[in-house]
Design a protein around this nucleic acid. Sequence first.
DNA 1: CTGAAAGCGCTTACAG
DNA 2: CTGAAAGCGCTTACAG
Lengths: 342, 342
Amino acid sequence: MATVKDIAKLAGVSTATVSRALANPKKVTDATKLKVQSAADQLGYAPNAIARSLRTQESKTIVVILPDIGNHFFTDIIKGIEQIAHKNAYKVLIGDAGNDVDRATKYLELVYSKQADGVLSLTADIPIANLLDASGKPKFPLVMACEYYPQSAIPSVHIDNEYSARIVLESLVQMGHYKIACITGDRRNSISIARMKGFKDSMKKWRLQIPDQYIAEGDYSLLSGYELAAGLLSLEDRPSAIFCHNDEMAIGVLKRAREMDIKVPEQLSVVGFDNIPFCEYSTPELSTVHQPKQLIGETAMKLLLNILSGKKPNPEITLPTQLIVRGTTMPPPLDQRLKIDI
Amino acid sequence: MATVKDIAKLAGVSTATVSRALANPKKVTDATKLKVQSAADQLGYAPNAIARSLRTQESKTIVVILPDIGNHFFTDIIKGIEQIAHKNAYKVLIGDAGNDVDRATKYLELVYSKQADGVLSLTADIPIANLLDASGKPKFPLVMACEYYPQSAIPSVHIDNEYSARIVLESLVQMGHYKIACITGDRRNSISIARMKGFKDSMKKWRLQIPDQYIAEGDYSLLSGYELAAGLLSLEDRPSAIFCHNDEMAIGVLKRAREMDIKVPEQLSVVGFDNIPFCEYSTPELSTVHQPKQLIGETAMKLLLNILSGKKPNPEITLPTQLIVRGTTMPPPLDQRLKIDI
DNA sequence: CTGAAAGCGCTTACAG
DNA sequence: CTGAAAGCGCTTACAG
């Protein structure tokens, strides 16, 4: 491997000049620029980024901490992150936590070991003490996306989860549903809490009850939706609608309903969350809440870039969602329909 | 950030001793080990991996080049890679090529810039001249998984694509299908070529015809399966079975059939490839070829580890596949059934 | 515009 | 067992 030293020798200049010619072509004569350039080409020079990092104290790399690479929701988020990162000459290290807190936390070491300049975390499962110093400020350049720590000073971009749950509920109630169940994610998670709050607030507003057994806690997988639906759909007073906190669990519910011979949407309405590509390929096509996934990724990366360049960040950005009504929702059977004046 | 120098000062030893105490506790007195360790703890020392890399000339990082992060087939492969990598103290840099050859090729620079020690490529779309030197040997530690360059000296782990296609075809023919269409991936790709060969060989063996318009070229997306099925299913002599080169295209076919009111499997059999989790959640559940995805990832990473440690690699590893018959395949209607003696 | 020199933070032969 | 010194390959203030 050729180094600046080799180029310097071949071009008959100093290593300082080589470095300058390659990095700032303006600070150097056209003649030397040419000499250096052709020597570099001749030697097939590739700069050693490690040496550069050690000298400049920056790696031009960021880590994104991914809760679970098996969750398809994150695909477009990552695409958004990578697009902005690459456009700005940053490399992206993707750390899959496999739903494990310790593994997620471990990726933070990359910034202490100087292999990354900042962190873009898609999970709020990391103990917050690992992220904030005594004064409550982030210990290193850090942005959260999708998930977040409420009332923390960590810059974050996310949707309005409470509002998004409310529009789902409003739509369902307007159709006449009142026996509405819910399959959540991890219930200690801020996202689940916000969505549950939106759900409960809407129900309360319409003076509707939520029996305890109508709330089930899943893990965002196809399987957990499938398994939890078994319980929900066997209830004596079976719900006429199920609101799932992501699309994969909703697709799991669809399968269970099919097996139990419960017709969707005639006998059961199902709503998902995220709007992953598979929504349009389920039977029936899944009604859901659309999240601007790629935009979330892009925005979060831009925020991190701002922090990395020393600007003080916009602390919190909320992006819009949208209810998408497809084939899994309709008014419940007449005998189960709510009678209200709208 | 504390450095070895700081620790050395606090512990009253040299930086050399600090380095040794931390890395090889055996080469040092118990007393100094203790002194150094406690000084390091006290200062909250985190080693600078960049400096270490520059000195040791290895980054303990590998890149995996991913054709498209949107293709769910790769999820478990990556899990397998990461598991073995982390167990061996290697970091994994995931490079998403977004189905773009130039982007894929660009990730190779990470090894020239010393940010990665080796490459695990899941795509064979990179021009091979970028990988091999004049004598046909890999320019750097390199392993292929899933895809490969036929007759190259690049170590690779993959399935037997030809055989896998044959078992699909045999199963279909045994059921009595003879009008069998195929939706492939990129047809210049070695995987598609091998699967097509298995397909054609089987058909030839049974003396069956494959009309040109029975072969359609897709891009592994849900949408391409959906779109190409429109043509296939509108043919005057409509196929009674479609073999898709991945599950997502097969699920796209299912949707189109539903819309055209063609009953699967009664009027149309569909077979996918890969066995992604969604297979069990489609309607009907998708028959497919199971690939040992996680094992492929693990095996490929072990191969790369071998190369990295100077051992000469096992050049090619083939892992077994398995036909999984679910709800999308059955014998064709009687009037379209092949009459053969078996 | 160019060069000599220092230094980023480690590790490791080489002496002792 | 321990220390002094060199060096990995860059970049950048400092002189000139």
